[in-house]
Nucleic acid binder design. Structure first.
Length: 569
DNA sequence: GCCGTTTTCGGCCCGACTGTTTTCAGTCG
């Protein structure tokens, strides 16, 4: 029995209870219990007595124990007796919540989305008390939305939507604006977009936005907010704009950045002090307090600044976060490509761009010879590149430019260059780019072979996943981390928003060194670093656990000492 | 269902918008 099975059980019970119209606080008690398990890093076995966890009392303990012992839950079985499974799917339909669904079910006996659609077409829904023509029409279009649109979009797609909307905001001209919500928190996927913005002309802005060609529907509009459905490349998503004036800006930004759980936690904290947090500020005895920055907001509650990426479960409010790595800690990028292989810029252009970023060192790591599709480097071309890098490095006294490679780990586990070549490089990355469908055993053999090699410093994008596109190859995570630790091999957080690999989920509480790199194929890609940083922050990784936070001098020593040197010194 | 330096009952974050009804419930974030 795994912890995640128990978490799923509790969440499932919560959903069924919700549809059974049980007390909403009872429902959220089950959700909180699930969250509590989720937030605990230990396995079920290590936790032992779940009743000791905050948020898990007598009731949920007995539910959990029954489930662990028998694999079943009477509570859930009983709920399923009274609540048809089809109603759970209906919850996904916007504008329909548990109360309305229960009414539709109780009065009309409707159990599925399909039957609901039929009832709308037959105008049965509008006959129900509390429903009308508009509700019926909305349900009908919202059903189509649910059936035709993915639940969430991967961050890469989200960034394209954001780009689209930002162009309009800038074209209209507003005093200031920010992206908020889950995309500001750099979640791997998002359901919708949230902007907050300040303008003197709300009605003008509203009119302007509704007129944009990519707007397909106006969900709601008011004095304080505007909600639109937009379309890009046949994909649709909802965008919420929240209007804010002057001093309230920071509180509104903080509020709409979320997460919900983070806000609940902060509000509890405020409540304990006799204060109240809302999107308008903090209500104190002496009136409403507003803030000049989010730093000031968190400081007011005696907390270090919590970066948006970390604002997820509420746990981040309780722990000491001052050593967690920050973007400003990053002193170099160790994985990038140039025109030698499949990059868009020359070595020099990449160096210039890195200098603008303020980096103290970079490693040029083009693809190795077997990756033909990416114009991988033959031994001769690599030697020529090393020579060129060394020459360019000499020209700059404010940055160190190292010669590296992103070397393929071939399907049979062998590496793409032999020792004669590898020893001439400053830094070697190994990565899998082929035969993704191999068994976990074969994949692990390949990864271990690479980690055994004394020249291989780090493993790039260790799972090969592309968020929302492909899962990557089968990696035994425990074995990967164990072997990385044993061999002194560093694991990469690939900051490309299509990858974010390793993910924040798997890096928590690991005793290995990480490095966060953009894998830039263009100078603009250096900007991806913030997404990798967000991943590290979500994983609660400290600065001392990230290789490229080393100073220029310390990194040089690391390069000279070789793979197994202790970089903590 | 859970929790407790306002503890064993009474709260549990808080506000905007829609649609329906006519003062507010339901949904959403």
């Amino acid at each position: 029995m795994l912890k995640k099975d128990v978490i799923r059980l509790l969440e499932e019970i919560a959903v069924y209870m919700e549809l059974n119209l049980e007390n909403t606080f009872k429902v959220s008690a089950y959700r909180k219990a699930a969250q509590s398990l989720e937030n605990d890093e230990r396995s079920l076995e290590e936790i032992g007595d779940v009743g000791k966890l905050k948020g898990i009392g007598k009731g949920t303990t007995s539910v959990i124990e029954e489930f662990v012992n028998t694999g079943q839950s009477q509570v859930l079985e009983d709920l399923k007796e009274t609540v048809p499974t089809g109603l759970v799917r209906m919850l996904k339909i916007p504008s329909l919540g548990p109360k309305k669904i229960a009414k539709i079910h109780d009065v009309l006996g409707i159990k599925t989305i399909e039957a609901l659609k039929e009832a709308c077409l037959n105008q049965e829904i509008s006959q129900l008390p509390g429903f009308g023509k508009k509700s019926e029409a909305n349900i009908l279009t919202n059903i189509d939305t649910v059936l035709s649109r993915p639940d969430r979009y991967p961050i890469d797609k989200i960034l394209k939507f954001i780009d689209l909307v930002e162009k309009s905001i800038k074209a209209f001209g507003v005093k200031r604006y920010d992206i908020a919500g889950s995309s500001r928190r750099v979640k791997e996927t998002s359901r919708d977009l949230d902007f907050i913005l300040e303008t003197d002309d709300i009605s003008g802005f509203t009119e302007f936005m509704i007129g944009q060609a990519y707007v397909t529907n106006v969900v709601s509009q008011g004095e304080k907010k505007l909600s639109l459905e937009i379309e890009d490349d046949f994909d649709k998503i909802n965008v919420d704009f929240r209007f804010v004036q002057g001093e309230e800006y920071i509180s509104t930004l903080q509020h709409f950045t979320g997460s919900k759980d983070h806000n609940v936690k902060m509000r509890q904290l405020a409540k304990e002090r006799g204060e109240k947090i809302s999107e308008y500020g903090v209500t104190t005895e002496s009136g409403i307090k507003t803030f000049k920055s989010e730093e000031e907001f968190y400081q007011y509650f005696g907390l270090d600044y919590i970066p948006p990426a970390m604002r997820e479960t509420g746990q981040e409010v309780d722990i000491d976060i001052k050593d967690i790595v920050k973007l400003s800690d990053i002193k170099g990028d160790l994985h990038m490509h140039t025109t030698y292989s499949d990059g868009a810029a020359t070595i020099r252009e990449m160096v210039e761009s890195a200098r603008e970023k303020g980096y103290e060192y970079i490693v040029i790591t083009d693809h190795s010879k077997s990756l033909f599709v990416a114009n991988g480097l033959s031994e001769a071309r690599l030697l020529q590149q090393i020579k060129e890098i060394k020459e360019i490095d000499k020209e700059y006294d404010d940055i160190d430019v190292y010669a590296g490679i992103e070397m393929d780990i071939l399907a049979d586990g062998s590496l793409d260059y032999d020792e004669e070549i590898l020893k001439q490089l400053d830094y070697v990355i190994a990565a899998i780019h082929s035969s993704f469908s191999q068994s976990e055993n074969q994949i692990m053999t390949r990864l271990k072979n690479a980690m055994d090699n004394p020249y291989v410093r780090h493993i790039a994008h260790p799972t090969g996943r592309l968020i929302g596109v492909r899962d990557g190859y089968d990696v035994d995570m425990e074995a990967l981390f164990d072997y990385a630790k044993e061999t002194g091999t560093i694991l990469e957080i690939n900051a490309n928003p299509r990858r974010l690999d390793l993910s924040s989920e798997v890096i928590k509480n690991r005793e290995v060194m990480f490095t966060v790199n953009t894998d830039a194929h263009h100078p603009d890609h250096f900007d991806f670093m913030k997404y990798g940083l967000a991943t590290l922050q979500k994983g609660f990784i400290n600065k001392s656990q990230v290789l490229n936070t080393l100073s220029r001098q310390a990194f040089k020593e690391f390069i000279n000492k070789g793979k197994l040197s202790d970089i903590h010194e």
